[in-house]
Amino acid sequence: MTVELLLQTLLSGILIGLVYALVAIGLTLIFGVMDIVNFAHGEFLMFGMYAAFWGFAFWKLDPIVTLPLTALLLFAFGVVVYKLVIRRITDAPMLSQIFATFGLMILFRGLAQYLWKPDFRSVDHTIVAGKVVLGGLQFGLPQVVAAAGAVVTTAAVWAFLRYTRLGAALEATAADKEAAALMGIDAQRMFALAWGIGAACAGVAGALLATCYPIFPEVGSTFILVAFVLVALGGFGSVVGAFWAGILVGVVEVMGGFLWDPAYKMVLVLSLYLLVVWFRPQGLMGKA
């Protein structure tokens, strides 16, 4: 009985951790390619959730059905944000970069409140409603689908970086901007691509979460802290690192809440992170 409960908790942790990882992957990709921490990343997720919600509210389309469209929309949005704002601060000091993306965060939250009011909204019926029963264990189908979607997307991004010419160009820019430029890789295009993919990942995560999570203008703040932790824990810029860190953090969070006290689950996660970077400042899989 206790073993089942423990297993249930463990697997729930892995499920949520996989979605955390998907949010963090976009963030770590942007950081890896251009050394900018995007404080507005949670708002990309928020916009993804709203895109899914409005598709459902207007056309009765399921968030899972509109997911590819949401990803495309967010890709375009990420590129636009890059072209309009980020492009101008590429070489600015770290301090003004923080300033700019933090301003974007406030702006996007304000926009969402202005356009869609601060109400909590939810997608009240979806094709993924229901439960998955596995022996004595039970999981919500939306959570399982979200986790599966996160794994597929993460794998796709990883394969794109590893096996395509464009992905290799992106990695080359991340490794050495000047050398990549000498090989004829247009850094500006790569930066725009990183913002597009980063935002699209957050958009996919948003669409997946829309099936099982309330949607409101500040929803990004719930996920951004964990995403930051994953990026730093996994190693800034490491997609694989963020993935494993996501699973680790999801398990620690859910297990901590279960075994100790839900109020302190984040304390546990953050302490684990500080402990790891104390001994391994570059994160689990970051390059020193």
Binding site: S96, A100, L104, I106, L107, A112, Q113, Y114, P118
Partner: peptide, 24 residues
């Protein structure tokens, strides 16, 4: 108004300052 107009203006100003006056 509870509609976040102040946040929109505030955020936009921060972004503009960061872009056009990065040294503060």
């Amino acid at each position: 108004t509870g509609r976040g107009t102040d946040l929109v203006v505030h955020g936009a100003l921060l972004v503009l300052i960061a872009v056009y006056q990065p040294s503060g």
